[in-house]
Design a protein around this nucleic acid. Sequence first.
DNA 1: GCTTATCCGGAACGTCTTTCCGTATATTTG
DNA 2: CAAATATACGGAAAGACGTTCCGGATAAGC
Lengths: 212, 212
Amino acid sequence: MTENTVPGGVDAAWPGGGERAPRKRRVDAQRNTDSLLEAAKTVFGTSGVDAPAKEITDLAGVGVGTLYRHFPQRSDLVKAVFQREVDSCADAAPGLAAAHEPGEALEQWLYRFTEFLATKRGLASALHSGDPAFDELPGYFMQRFGPALGSLLDAAAAEGEIRADVSPEELLHAVGNLCMVADADGPAYSRRMVSLLIDGLRYGADKSRSRS
Amino acid sequence: MTENTVPGGVDAAWPGGGERAPRKRRVDAQRNTDSLLEAAKTVFGTSGVDAPAKEITDLAGVGVGTLYRHFPQRSDLVKAVFQREVDSCADAAPGLAAAHEPGEALEQWLYRFTEFLATKRGLASALHSGDPAFDELPGYFMQRFGPALGSLLDAAAAEGEIRADVSPEELLHAVGNLCMVADADGPAYSRRMVSLLIDGLRYGADKSRSRS
DNA sequence: GCTTATCCGGAACGTCTTTCCGTATATTTG
DNA sequence: CAAATATACGGAAAGACGTTCCGGATAAGC
């Protein structure tokens, strides 16, 4: 899953090209990077993105020096955590598609997506803080979630389970906005709103195309 | 203008009631709070609301202890600066009303209002940070600007210079939103958008009621 | 002018961030 | 497998900032 990830760039393909291989990335470095990301995800959720660095390094079982070597700036860590969770959510789509009927898969994934959104409360203000370090994140968000949702949408539409005239982008926006204003009322509320949205998708379905 | 202002509450009427007057507020204390507010306004605009405290105290020519005595929490300072600027902008309305025709006064004041908004970029994120210390500010905003704009609006409507079916609140919101999304394109752009809005107000005017 | 409540300044302290370097270890080479 | 070396680790140290505290100063009241 985490295969030789070098922290920093959105798509830092590392041993990719044909340059003289300098050396292989040390496994402990990779392990520590993973531990830090995991710990940071937890701590960000608990104490916000401005939590003390020590809290993160302690949880990760790592020295502070290690944190700053892998993530020289705090924004680097925030970006990495964000992307990691985006990836995790987006990558769940194919598995759900394989395990369920298209309509069910779509519904499951959207719930998964609402959970992703729920952990982003603290990040939201950071992302909109005007710090140029975060400029690329919205793009990454769409770049990953657009195709992921798109394939689920297409599959469900092909089966005639939902209407076919909704783009992934607008659905992502809709769910996103829904949960942003709804989160104050708890996750259960978000979930109900989203299921309402899904029923709306089904309402206009072209059942004649169904094969099942 | 600044008459014995005690920092802290929105409407901290101080020697107001009939309690045993403890003593008069020392003039140097008043002078220093004014200096601090003035300096904080400048520094907030330059370095954001998270600027180092020393930067503010140096500019105010005051020791850090003085800052913390008058404004124990940073949010106290932020609130005070905000309210001071709200007051300054709202209090400009009567003067403009006396110096210009009602329609012109309205236009002038709205430009003044856009300038006010332009300095609030840094504050916006702080206000929406979820800190309960700022909960009262939106209310203060409306409480001061509503009547200020309302009287200008009424005067202009009475002269038949603008339509009469627009409430102060909705106009404040409209201008606010306009400048929020427009500010990235510079103040000139905000100004053009607002003048467009004013022309929209004039369009539906009942000229028959004009007396001039 | 004298007393006293009030206020001032900045040193002192604690917390958090960030740098730095001696030590440890994974990887490569022979 | 052992030596060589690039790479990474940990935590001490330095720096920056927020916050507290109190001896000294000064305005207000008499």
